[in-house]
């Protein structure tokens, strides 16, 4: 895992840290308490927030297949968890490398882009209600990394039925 401050501790024998490295380190350490409190808030409110999203989704998009709704809700929760971890460790690559390529493909395979877009906007509303302004400001840039891509049609067939 690549932390923002990763690698700066490696050259003790050669030099003291540069002012900008110390500044980065200080910024990470001083924001850590706030990061942890935001992380706890997301964790504690996860199920309640996502449940409200699911309830509202049924009102806003009543005709959507249950499998699509479930898949979309899972995508939202997965994003929430990756973003929370990325925020805690100040490590955007966690979202960019581990989650996004996989999520984009999943959205295409299951054709959930349209529902995902609604779910994500509902989720943001819920986050604003559950997190305070400082926590939201800290969390939002990570959530913004997760963008929903347009979907492609793909048949869901089974291997065994093909031959």
């Amino acid at each position: 895992m690549q932390f923002l401050i990763d690698g700066i501790f490696d050259e003790a024998e050669n030099r003291y840290l540069k002012p900008e490295e110390l500044r980065d380190l200080g910024q990470y350490v001083s924001s850590l308490t706030a990061r942890m409190s935001t992380y706890r808030a997301v964790r504690d409110h996860e199920v309640a927030m996502v449940q409200k999203v699911a309830d509202q989704l049924e009102l806003e998009m009543p005709g959507v297949a249950i499998a699509t709704v479930e898949r979309s809700i899972k995508n939202a929760m997965l994003s929430l968890r990756y973003c929370a971890m990325a925020m805690l460790s100040q490590n955007e690559s966690l979202v960019e490398k581990q989650l996004l390529p996989w999520l984009k493909e999943s959205v295409q395979l299951h054709n959930t882009a349209e529902v995902d877009a609604v779910v994500f906007s509902l989720l943001k509303q819920q986050l604003r209600l559950s997190l305070n302004a400082q926590q939201m400001a800290m969390f939002e840039p990570f959530l913004a990394l997760v963008e929903v891509t347009p979907a492609l049609e793909e048949d869901l067939l089974t291997i065994a039925g093909m031959f």
Partner: peptide, 23 residues
């Protein structure tokens, strides 16, 4: 009516098992 807690299996959401950084 969807129950979100029922979607979680042992509070897990299996996703990208083969992510290179983790695998």
């Amino acid at each position: 009516m969807i129950s979100v807690s029922d979607l979680l299996v042992d509070n897990r959401l299996p996703a990208n098992y083969y992510a290179s950084e983790v695998y």
